[in-house]
Design a protein around this nucleic acid. Structure first.
Lengths: 338, 338
DNA sequence: CTGAAAGCGCTAACAC
DNA sequence: GTGTTAGCGCTTTCAG
């Protein structure tokens, strides 16, 4: 109705109206026990009446806690991270926290500046799917210097002493590769991801499994790509090779999807001539041209578990044991490796 | 190195070290002109040395501005909204704003509580892809009562006097339907979305175009669905009908993808026997089993334009003309309507 | 049980 | 140019 912007109601206003102190009202708002029953109900009534909403900025400054946590992901458009974000939000919301989501665009410097911003905003904790190069620890040190708890997600940093939640990347590489071998493939190519633990681990699992099976692949069977588009182009090169691969293991679903596009476009049949497998079980995997076999890594659960660990760390004085949660990857076999 | 959490450096610390007043330091930090060159450089040096980072909570309280804006979307997993979020972030970041992203899960009550939280956090503005039922204005009134600028995204509310940025939904419906007619389809079914302006507008465009072409469709040719899964089931019902549709217009890409899944599963060929078109041009549209024809609505640009309008409104005293940006939809014809 | 005092770290507005 | 005075709206601490 009244479209005249009103200055928000403050504790002070309620206190004045009721002839009690600001403190008493504050206590009622926060649900402290030490307030008389009758006083409490009078205050509560007035609060409802005026529709009082606490000013969280003021509250945060005084209490030195914001009840905000920061989440930094490399790319929100990748549904894997969107799902993590969802899991995080779902986990912390009931506890009264809000999450500020930032996109690092897979760029370490941008990420560092996001971290600084979030720290400047006094977040109580940080969740980080970091795009830092593996040996660069400056960002983590800055966080630690501030004493703000944080949890690493998806990408691991061996030298950093922080909790981590993610999938077992080497296991992912092994499972995917073994699956292709089991399906009779012998010339298995790999679209490797960026040089982060995810990409490196999956590639390592791939190489180990190949070696264990006594398979050797020609020079050039491992190509690099970061998204569906670069994977598309990389795959076109792969298809020129002699002998041509009879399988491609993409380091994530988007790259596998890009590979499929190149393969089908070349008039090659999936899975008859080339089998394809990805990682991530993104939501649309089974809607692709050929439903994509993939390795599921429970993204929602990653978000939730990371959030749980973080919240516990926030509520604790100092030095809890550094937890590492490795989620067991699960093979989802679909048409693309039939 | 030093993993001993240090209390953050404050203006006061720098002021003390340099024997100047807190104000002077504050002015330097904010880049005010009225500071002596020599003083400024001393302060700057110390700031760098100590790696001073302003406390934004305190700053926000004092300045009565947080430089945070809130963005509420129904579903971050839907890449349309993820893309909008990205566009928003990209647009406001260089201006010093941060965005707090919230998920309403397509639930009006949850959305209302998110709005309250964001308002409580004193955001400077709000971007809202609202899940409110069309006649419910309580949320908007609460925002207006606080005098916080906001702009509506994607879903429109005719009675609400706020800027709006989104696609022209009726045009979308017309273009999609006309395209199917042009391709020779005569029994065009529609998977209608929820009863919001998006769903309603697209359906209206569909019906108008059908009428204009003198086409009538049997009872039951319009079914409702909200996501790929419900669309999958709805389409299975559609396929039982007699006569069977020769085209399906899905109100967005996920529903169209779900429809395709049901069609192909039934052994029916796309586009030979049934043509399919969606809306949104989501990122993976051309990777689907049959590359999906769709209507593009420039999601990134929606985010950017909405953010621009909001930022301008924030920087203004009061009452700017209420801008409505209707983005022209563009047909992207792919294999599914060949 | 209630409240007064003392800030949280910073900035607006105005003097000097 | 620089600094002073007053807070922003809330919570902490501790006395009554």
């Amino acid at each position: 109705m009244s479209h005249t912007p009103t200055t928000p109601v403050r504790l002070k206003d309620i206190a004045r109206d009721l002839n009690v102190s600001v403190m008493t009202v504050s206590k009622v708002v926060r649900g402290c026990a030490d307030v008389g029953a009758e006083t409490r109900s009078r205050v509560l009534a007035r609060i409802k009446e005026l529709n009082y909403q606490p000013n969280w900025v003021a509250r945060s400054l005084a209490a030195r806690r914001t009840f905000m946590i920061g989440l930094i992901v490399p790319d929100l458009m990748h549904s894997f991270f969107a799902e993590i974000a969802k899991g995080v939000a779902a986990a912390i919301r009931p506890l009264g926290y809000d999450v500020v989501i930032c996109n690092s665009e897979e760029n370490g410097d941008l990420e560092a500046s996001e971290v600084d911003r979030l720290l400047g905003r006094q977040v109580d904790g940080l969740l980080l799917a970091s795009a830092q190069p593996p040996s660069s620890h400056a960002v983590f040190e800055r966080i630690e210097a501030r004493g703000v708890p944080y949890v690493l997600i998806d990408r691991r940093f061996a030298a950093v002493r922080a909790p981590y939640v993610g999938a077992d990347d080497e296991a992912i590489g092994r499972i995917a590769t073994q699956h292709l071998i089991d399906r009779g493939c012998r010339r298995i190519a790999h679209i490797a991801g960026p040089a982060l633990t995810t990409g490196i681990g999956r590639r390592k699992g791939y190489e180990e499994t190949l070696a264990a099976a006594g398979l050797r692949v020609p020079e050039g069977y491992v190509v690099e790509a970061t998204d569906d588009d670069s994977a598309y182009h990389a795959t076109r090169r792969l298809l020129q090779m002699n002998p041509r691969p009879d399988a491609i293991f993409g380091y994530n679903d988007p790259t596998a999807a890009g590979a499929m596009k190149a393969i089908l476009e070349a008039g090659i049949r999936i899975p008859e001539e080339i089998k394809v497998i990805g990682v991530g079980n993104v939501h649309y995997s089974d809607l692709l041209r050929v439903p994509l076999s993939t390795i599921d890594q429970s993204s929602t659960s990653i978000g939730q578990q990371a959030a749980d660990i973080l919240i516990k760390a926030i509520g604790t004085k100092r030095k809890r044991p550094i937890k590492t949660v490795l989620i067991d990857p699960i093979l989802i076999a679909r048409e693309s490796t039939r």
